[in-house]
């Protein structure tokens, strides 16, 4: 079974959910599933779920958020790359200067500190038209096997 999993990489999951709290669980689940495929430990999977939830919450709680959140999870070698993007009408309308979402929203700010603690690599990208994108990477720690 494990062999089959390893042979099937790379894997890619993309999800678009409404920018609302009740959809965050789905994002968490999608990320958890792919993290599990990479054979992350239970604790690491919980961390990934928490990071994804924080990222989504950051978007939702930010006043100028868009209509939907786009999540993409990619298993690549021994690392999991997750992108969370704030998208939709409003997000597209705001200029770059106003689109400081992830970085500046106060509550989101704390979420971002937490995300940095949980993931190995975190970066932002502000698109003038497409809203803010948060990229986070978690690598598989050294496994005994």
């Amino acid at each position: 079974m494990n062999q089959a999993v390893e042979q099937s990489f790379p894997e890619f999951v993309e999800l678009r959910i409404p920018s609302r709290a009740e959809w965050v669980a789905l994002a968490r689940l999608a990320a958890a599933t792919i993290a599990n495929r990479l054979r992350f430990s239970i604790e690491e999977i919980e961390d990934v779920k928490l990071a994804v939830a924080e990222a989504c919450t950051a978007v939702i709680q930010y006043d100028g958020h868009g209509e939907f959140i786009e999540l993409s999870c990619e298993a690549q070698g021994d690392s999991l790359r997750i992108r969370v993007r704030d998208g939709g009408r409003q997000a597209a309308l705001s200029g770059v200067k106003e689109r400081i979402g992830f970085e500046e929203a106060r509550v989101a700010g704390l979420g971002v500190f937490l995300i940095r603690t949980l993931m190995d690599e975190v970066s932002y990208d502000v698109h003038p038209k497409n809203g803010t994108e948060l990229l986070m990477v978690k690598r598989l720690a050294g496994r005994p096997d």
Partner: peptide, 13 residues
């Protein structure tokens, strides 16, 4: 906050 978050999370974990 940047400095303290990993320490606090580390302690919780």
């Amino acid at each position: 906050t940047t400095y303290a978050t990993p320490t606090i999370v580390g302690e919780i974990k």
